[in-house]
């Protein structure tokens, strides 16, 4: 009955209005030959949420993020991202899953034989963007993180904080729905870390789902996010 009344997008299984952006249930992960890295993890993250995954070193934060983007596969359990079961995704579908995310790494993972511009342009090249429209987007992303003036600089000439911001520009240039950051402030001085925190806040304010794995207390007090705490691979408190 009400199918005739409600607009179609309410019924679309991929619609974020009815389904959470990310949903995990009974997720276990054991590395081959290793011990249990994740133990019966279940939580959901709604579209537009700002969530932190916290815990001591070795708690399983990185493993959790890796499961979300298909770098690692869960031993069991289901991981639904935007309506797609990531755990059973075919290998050739994984690249397209990853394009929904913007990834920010502690060690930046920049390419040192390319300029700042070239690094930020990478995700657009990969998804086959036109050069002209692409350049506009790259400059917008660089401007957003305050690096437009270093457009032609090589990453090696930038400071640690600037490199991290460059990594963030690369993560947002293709306007992903979800931003994932693994210890984004791990190597940074407090001032730089605060800048990064503000960037996350601003992305979140325009509707991007932001998930940060960190044990940086200062960042926590700065952003006051929802916290998903891990301890030895298990949830430490209700999410």
């Amino acid at each position: 009955m009400w199918t005739e009344v409600f607009p179609a997008f309410f019924l679309d299984p991929r619609s974020s209005l009815l389904n959470p952006m990310i949903s995990l249930s009974h997720v276990f992960k054991r590395y081959p030959g290793g011990r249990q890295a994740l133990n019966d993890i279940g939580f959901t993250i709604e579209t537009g949420e700002l969530a932190f995954i916290t815990g001591h070193s070795g708690a399983g934060k990185s493993t959790l993020l890796k499961l979300l983007v298909g770098i690692e596969r869960p031993t069991s359990g289901s991981i639904i991202v935007n309506g797609q079961n990531v755990g059973t995704l075919q290998a050739r579908a994984v690249p397209f899953l990853r394009r929904k995310f913007g990834l920010i790494f502690q060690d930046h993972k920049l390419l040192f034989d390319r300029s700042a511009f070239g690094n930020v342009a990478l995700p657009l090249e990969i998804s086959g963007y036109g050069a002209k429209d692409g350049a506009r987007r790259v400059r917008a992303a660089l401007d957003k993180v305050g690096l437009l003036k270093y457009e032609k600089a090589m990453p090696i000439t930038l400071s640690g904080g600037e490199q991290q911001r460059l990594c963030i520009a690369r993560a947002i240039v293709h306007r992903p729905a979800i931003l994932l950051a693994d210890e984004p402030t791990g190597n940074l001085d407090a001032d730089y870390a605060t800048e990064i925190g503000e960037l996350f806040r601003s992305f979140n304010q325009v509707g991007v789902t932001v998930i940060v794995a960190t044990h940086d207390q200062a960042l926590l007090t700065q952003l006051k996010p929802r916290v998903i705490a891990l301890r030895n691979g298990a949830l430490a408190e209700a999410a």
Binding site: V69, R92, P95, K109, L111, L122, S127
Partner: peptide, 16 residues
């Protein structure tokens, strides 16, 4: 290796 790893991470297909 590093370059390949990075572009794989940000969603490059094998063909690319």
């Amino acid at each position: 290796r590093d370059e390949v790893e990075v572009i794989k991470l940000i969603g490059a297909t094998d063909a690319f």
